[in-house]
C-alpha cells in the first residue's frame, strides 16, 4: 500500500472539514477523488502534509506513519503536489521553478529530468528564461506539474489540474497522467471537478461529500453509477451538495 488514510478528521478553527475519511492508494494506481465545491477535496490533499494537520486518525505513507511529520519531511518521503491554483513562484523564471522542484532530488538526475520535462511540455523548453508569473494559465499548470515531477516522487497528487484550461490543454494533461502511470509506473491521486475525464483515466475513485466518503469503486463502476451521473456528470459539477 502506498498511501492509507484511516478515520482522518481535519478542522479549520471551528469548521470541521473532514469527518473520518478512509482512503487508500495502491502502488501503481491512479485514484481519483471527486466531489462538489467545498466537499473537502483540497483539504484532504493538504492534510497529507499536515496543512491542516489531521486532528484525529492516521495517515500512513509507504509503511510509515506521517501524521505528525512537518510538511517538508513528508515531501521528502516522496510525495509531490500540484496544488490548487498552481502556486508556481511568479517572480522566478521557468528554469528556477523547475530547479526548486528538484531542490531535494539527486543533482546528477537534473539534466535527464529537465530533458524529460521539456519533451513532455515543449513550451517550457522555449520559455526557460521567462518569469513564471507571465506564463498563461495553461502554461503555468504545466509548469506546476513539471515542477512536481522534477523530484521524482513516488506519489503524485494533483488538485484540479484541468481547472480553467482550454479543452486542448485538458486533453494533454490527462494524456500526461496516463503516460506517467503506464510508462513510468507513477502512482497518482487526482482531485477533479471534471469527473468524466477523471473517472476514465482512474483505476478507482472516491466520492467525497461534506467531508465524508459516500461512494467508492472502480472508475467504470462510478461512471455508471446513477448517483454519480446525476450529481457530477449530467448536470455538470457542483450540484452534489
Amino acid at each position: 500500500m502506498m498511501l492509507e488514510l484511516s478515520a482522518v478528521h481535519a478542522h479549520y478553527g471551528h469548521i470541521h472539514a473532514l469527518h473520518g475519511v478512509d482512503l487508500a492508494v495502491q502502488v501503481g494506481e491512479v485514484v481519483t477523488l471527486i466531489g462538489a465545491n467545498g466537499a473537502g477535496k483540497s483539504t484532504l490533499m493538504m492534510s497529507l502534509f499536515g496543512q491542516p494537520r489531521a486532528s484525529m486518525g492516521r495517515i500512513i505513507f509507504d509503511g510509515e506513519d506521517i501524521t505528525a511529520l512537518p510538511a517538508h519531511e513528508i515531501s521528502r518521503r516522496g510525495i509531490a503536489l500540484v496544488p490548487e491554483g498552481r502556486r508556481i513562484f511568479p517572480r522566478m523564471t521557468v528554469m528556477e521553478n523547475l530547479q526548486m522542484g528538484a531542490a531535494l532530488a539527486d543533482p546528477t538526475n537534473f539534466d535527464v529530468d529537465l530533458k524529460r520535462m521539456c519533451a513532455l511540455f515543449p513550451i517550457l523548453d522555449e520559455r526557460q528564461g521567462q518569469r513564471a508569473g507571465t506564463l498563461s494559465g495553461g502554461e503555468q499548470q504545466m509548469l506546476a506539474i513539471a515542477r512536481a515531477l522534477m523530484s521524482r516522487p513516488k506519489l503524485l497528487l494533483l488538485d484540479e489540474p484541468s481547472l480553467g484550461l482550454a479543452p486542448l490543454y485538458i486533453k494533454k494533461i490527462f494524456q500526461t497522467i496516463r503516460t506517467l502511470n503506464r510508462d513510468h509506473g507513477m502512482t497518482v491521486l487526482l482531485v477533479e471537478q471534471n469527473a468524466h475525464h477523471a473517472l476514465r483515466v482512474a483505476h478507482r475513485g472516491y466520492v467525497l461529500q461534506h467531508g465524508r466518503i459516500v461512494l467508492s469503486g472502480s472508475g467504470r463502476e462510478l461512471l455508471a453509477s446513477p448517483e454519480v451521473r446525476a450529481a457530477y456528470l449530467e448536470g455538470g459539477a457542483g450540484k452534489g451538495d
Binding site: M92, M100, A103, L104
Partner: peptide, 23 residues
C-alpha cells in the same frame, strides 16, 4: 540553491515547504 530557496520562501512559504525545504 540557498538563494533560490530564500526567494521561494519570500514568494510562497507553504509551497516551498511542500517542495521539501525546511522553511
Amino acid at each position: 540553491s540557498f538563494g533560490r530557496q530564500q526567494r521561494a520562501c519570500e514568494q510562497d512559504r507553504l509551497m516551498t515547504s511542500l517542495l521539501g525545504i525546511n522553511v
